[in-house]
Design a protein around this nucleic acid. Structure first.
Length: 589
RNA sequence: GGGGUGUUAGCUCAGCUGGUUAGAGCGCCGGCCUGUCACGUCGGAGGUCGAGGGUUCAAGUCCCUUACAUCCCGCCA
């Protein structure tokens, strides 16, 4: 293998061409098959598996004797001779299956307790057990592959960025708390009692300051921290490949991102056609009910408001005639054959997405129609609906009649749910840009405005005057990178003018005083000749999750946390001593 | 903060309308076995049924509380 290892070869590389060679292998005992007078051991390392043969006639009594005692997961070192397996005993399932190593000498490097679960792929061991013994879980070929792929992807990305003259710069993990976004993880300062650092939610502001600092092209494989509730695709600490460029247009940043992503995806064997398709935010919401649509299948949202303007079905007529409301539907092909009880359950699902109820029409295979609402429909309405929604026997049409945004969200959620429920095939990977997000969104309860992306995003020039008068109409220079229905990255141009930055912060409810207290360093920096800038951040964990086909980002992280934020292996978080608390002037209730 | 699902042997699970000593497969331990590769074969050990409380003559099973895991909603500038 190399001069830096006790082994001469790894356990995945021996072939017929190596027959006759004397080799040294190191690895873990995977399976042991003891035939009494002959013992086979499958030796596993990070590259593969090789069969070892212990034969008392050929390898001397001592090695054989040791082989009787060794057990799964013991690390051993063996020396022996590569030889062909006897005729008809080759194992076609193993790359090394043509050969075996006849062992002359074996050194037990360590013993092992019986592992709590078997170290092999396709196990269905509960995840908490895997996490409790993560170091054993990582020995499984599947996890080895996941971490390898993550490395290959990241390495290629680094290499591509390096070749484009990006400088990798580390930004601090002890930073200033900016609680406007996600909740911060905070770190008490011992030297300054009562003051706290925050772990960065992203290097956003610091990378902008690097642009002010003349770095011009920056990137970083950056750990980010957000103290929010977890999901299958959300961990409290995660990794972004973060980049920023000076003196660029939006198209130039997007072009650069496409270039480096193409290199990275190619490195892991994934086809990445450039330029990527672009969909506007409003079009995405209107058609897919999502700003991160999976476009590998249809089931588009269809606006049928005009059809029901004069309907006897009051719920629809009311929404169709009310400003800002819509009657929309999706057509789930195949679900029209579902039994009534199964369809009824969809109402519960719809409610999780914010619906008050769910109107539906099942078009049965035999041509009959089953629905609680069609009795209110005129023949014309039914005919128009069938035409608009492309209805055939076997279809299930579901409606949302309410505010436009809410209707999109409900049906967008149902679209994803039905795709899973119907097992719709999603072949290959789906990459696209969603562009032109609005600058602001409004909380329907409080009326307060918040930034759709973040407060440092550059608004479209001609919309700047609308910030005071019609903030929801202000566009922004933004782009999200969407992969297979996941937000896998995002970016935008940044405000590089201090006055404009202050104006945006004020729109978000900051007084000038408060803005300066929180972001004074940024405003000041922008006033010292900040260049036009823009950038991007890639959610590395999510991309890797999708690349390996995992259901959770935990499967592409070495030591992830549970959904309540615990590290089951280390036992974190944990209490600290009163002395430690005293050091940082804290008391726990 | 809310909702769904789950927790029985080391692992994965079964255990019906409450009723003897709680089962299976794998793993583990021991015997036999010179061509297996999910080796075979014979035998064996292994359980406070997540925890606490309640109903009952009787609780793995019913009720309440709680912990943990997991998925989703809220949340995630």
């Amino acid at each position: 293998m190399s001069e830096f290892c006790m082994a001469t070869h790894n356990a995945g590389e021996l072939r017929s061409s190596d027959i006759g060679q004397d080799v040294v292998l190191c690895g873990w005992v995977w399976r042991r098959r003891d035939h009494g007078g002959l013992i086979f051991v499958d030796l596993r390392d990070h590259e593969g598996v090789t069969q070892l043969t212990f034969d008392p006639d050929n390898s001397g009594g001592e090695a054989f004797h040791t082989a009787e005692a060794i057990r799964p997961e013991w690390p051993i070192m063996v020396s022996g001779t590569v030889r062909a397996r006897p005729e008809d005993t080759a194992n076609p399932n193993l790359p090394t299956g043509e050969v075996e190593v006849l062992v002359h000498e074996v050194v037990v490097l360590n013993t092992s307790k019986t592992p709590p679960f078997q170290i092999e792929d396709g196990i269905d061991t509960a995840e908490d057990t895997r996490l409790r013994y993560r170091y054993l879980d990582l020995r499984r070929p599947e996890m080895q592959h996941n971490l390898k792929l993550r490395n290959d992807f990241t390495f290629a990305l680094r290499s591509a960025l390096h070749n484009q003259d990006f400088l990798e710069v580390e930004t601090p993990s002890l930073a200033k708390s900016t609680p406007e976004g996600a909740r911060d993880f905070i770190v008490p300062s011992r030297i300054q009692p009562g003051n706290f650092y925050a772990l960065p939610q992203s290097p956003q502001l610091l990378k902008q300051l690097l642009m002010v600092g003349g770095i011009e092209r920056y990137y970083q494989v950056a750990k980010c921290f957000r103290d929010e509730d977890l999901r299958a695709d959300r961990q409290p600490e995660f990794t972004q490949v973060d980049l920023e460029m000076s003196f660029v247009t939006q198209d130039q940043v997007m072009g650069m991102v496409e270039h480096v992503l193409k290199e990275a995806f190619s490195a892991v064997g994934v086809n990445f056609e450039t330029p990527l398709r672009r969909i506007g935010y409003w079009e995405a919401m209107d058609t897919y009910g999502s700003d991160k649509p999976d476009t590998r299948y249809g089931m588009h949202l269809v606006d049928v408001s005009d059809i029901f303007k004069a309907s006897r079905f009051k719920v629809f007529a009311s929404a169709a005639n009310t400003e800002g409301e819509r009657v929309k539907c999706i057509n789930a092909k195949g679900a029209g054959a579902w039994p009534r009880a199964q369809i009824d359950k969809l109402e519960k699902v719809a409610k999780t997405f914010g619906a008050k109820g769910l109107a539906w029409i099942a078009f049965r295979e035999d041509g009959s129609v089953n629905s609680p609402i069609v009795k209110f429909f005129s023949d014309e309405e039914m005919a128009a609906l069938k035409e608009r929604a492309d209805v055939e026997p076997g279809d299930l049409v579901m409606f949302a009649a309410c505010g436009r945004k809410q209707a999109d969200e409900i049906l967008g959620g149902m679209r994803c749910h039905m795709a899973d429920a119907l097992g719709i095939e999603r072949e290959g990977h789906d990459f696209l840009w969603v562009v032109d997000f609005p600058m602001f969104e409004q909380d329907s309860a409080t009326g307060r405005y918040s930034a759709e992306h973040h407060p440092f995003t550059l608004p479209v020039e001609q919309d700047v005057q609308l910030i005071d008068t019609d903030p929801l109409a202000v566009g922004s220079y933004t782009y999200d990178f969407v992969m297979d229905g996941f937000e896998a990255g995002g970016g935008g141009l940044r405000i590089h003018n201090a006055d404009l930055q202050l104006k945006v912060l004020e729109r978000l409810g900051f007084t000038e005083e408060k803005a300066k207290e929180q972001f004074g360093f940024l405003l000041e920096a922008l006033s010292f000749g900040a260049p036009p800038m823009g950038g991007f951040a890639l959610g590395l964990d999510r991309v890797c999750m999708l690349l390996v086909g995992a259901d959770s980002i935990r499967d592409v992280m070495a030591f992830p946390k549970t959904s309540s934020g615990s590290d089951l292996m280390q036992g974190a978080p944990s209490q600290v001593s009163s002395a430690q608390l005293k050091d940082v002037s804290l008391r726990v209730d």
